[in-house]
Design a protein around this nucleic acid. Structure first.
Lengths: 249, 249
DNA sequence: CGTTTGATTGACACGAGTCAACACCAGTGG
DNA sequence: CCACTGGTGTTGACTCGTGTCAATCAAACG
């Protein structure tokens, strides 16, 4: 079985066996957590960087009113906060949504890894650019679409991401979210999330239950979501950009 | 007058005269643009990186429906898309909102600058982390607050950012947005933006007109916005992190 | 000057939130 | 074994925030 981080970075650049094993080496400190467990909390000093190996993790923030907003999902192979140790404290929290396995990595080790292997450095930069693009897409999603479109958009995004990792079983994937989680993701109430789900089911676009999502009509879902996968940059390739990147060995 | 980019990075790390002049040197290709002019468009190949020297710029995306969402504001000294050249095409557009002066920099020159000066590299990393944090805060803003709070939050954020640069005149700053721009920023209609502004004025929190915003009651505005400036990380300092950063000269 | 762009207003429609009640299920402990 | 619990999903009735449409007004501009 391929290492999850390697599998993820391979989307962008085919890593050599040596590079792959270097990544495996920095992932020695493994943490296993059950679902709904805090990994790191807002206002904590930012010391560690985490790599998600298996499971499902959410970034989120709370408002004093008790309202929670999910800011991003992490899927296997995702790194959280490369470079975050520059900051005094973390500005958001990380929680598992499903039982998860993470590697805790010091920023020193990660920096060494990137200094040693330019291709890995480029791949992490690519991953960070995608994260930024995804955050911007979520801003668009929340600001410019209504509930049905927002939810459809989330389903499309997670599908494309998992599919690129080979973690989607056809048009069917594990999505361990409660309706409340979904509501906190797209900024609506849980009651409305329930009704929005029903609407998507009524239109025969999806079925959802038992922590699995099944896409019954991808084209239709993408249309409702006005989904454009460009922002995931799954087509960017290291090889075509080599000339720009080989500069600093 | 200090170079805008130096002024910005100085918030994080005091740059030496040598470092400051190195930044000035890469900013030789200056572009001047009037208000409401496209700098770069979605789907264009990503070739250049821009540094905003003076003015006001917005990132935004359009939906096929014609709906526009503003994703971020750039204030003087902000860099747009360090590292973007890794990607095949840009996933959003950049437009001036006020007459602006920008420096067009090749990614090669920027990489050289960062390779040469570790402190500058750290400062750009810090700036990028802030941008990411700000994007996340906008997700929270759009997902978890109502119109009045959202608008108040935008006013607070821009105030803190401009103030840190010394560009706020007391509680008064230039904000060259139309009500339509404001509406596209916080995801509401222009009619509702107008009424939301009236509500903030009625509560004696702000006055806004003639492209200037005047904050009449900062405490009150922050309360309505539930504003927490933590995410801007204006307190992070290079000197306190030196031990982590001196590693790779 | 007319023309245009942005700001303002009122009437009405509609999307989404709230509250409350109920159903269902997996644990849990007596 | 069963009652009890807490979390999750579902539903209806009602309220409220926000969008839409259309008209008007003011200021900027060629």
């Amino acid at each position: 079985m391929m290492h999850p981080v390697v599998r993820k970075l391979n989307i962008f650049a085919s890593l050599s066996p040596e590079e792959a094993s270097a990544i495996g080496l920095v992932c020695s400190d493994i943490v296993e957590l059950p679902a709904h467990r805090a990994i790191a909390r807002e206002d904590e000093p930012a010391i560690n960087v985490f790599l998600l190996l298996e499971g499902f993790v959410a970034r989120h923030k709370m408002l004093p009113s008790g309202r929670r907003q999910i800011l991003a999902f992490m899927t296997p192979g995702d790194t959280c906060d490369v470079g975050v140790t520059l900051l005094a404290r973390r500005d958001h929290s990380l929680t598992t949504l499903a039982p998860s396995r993470l590697a805790r990595v010091s920023d020193v080790a990660l920096d060494h890894l990137m200094a040693e292997y330019p291709k890995i450095r480029a791949a992490f930069r690519w991953a960070t650019l995608i994260e930024e693009g995804t955050a911007r897409e979520w801003i668009l999603n929340l600001g410019a679409r209504e509930a049905v479109g927002r939810m459809a958009h989330v389903f499309c995004e997670v599908y494309y991401r998992l599919n690129a990792l080979g973690l989607a079983n056809g048009l069917n994937y594990e999505l361990p979210l409660t309706q409340q989680d979904l509501a906190d993701t797209i900024g609506i109430s849980s009651v409305h999330a329930n009704r929005t789900l029903q609407e998507l089911r009524r239109r025969k676009l999806i079925s959802f239950g038992d922590r699995r999502l099944n896409i019954r009509d991808l084209k239709g879902l993408e249309e409702v979501a006005q989904f454009e996968p460009t922002y995931l940059h799954l087509d960017a390739r290291y090889d075509e950009k080599k000339q720009f990147l080989g500069r600093r060995p």
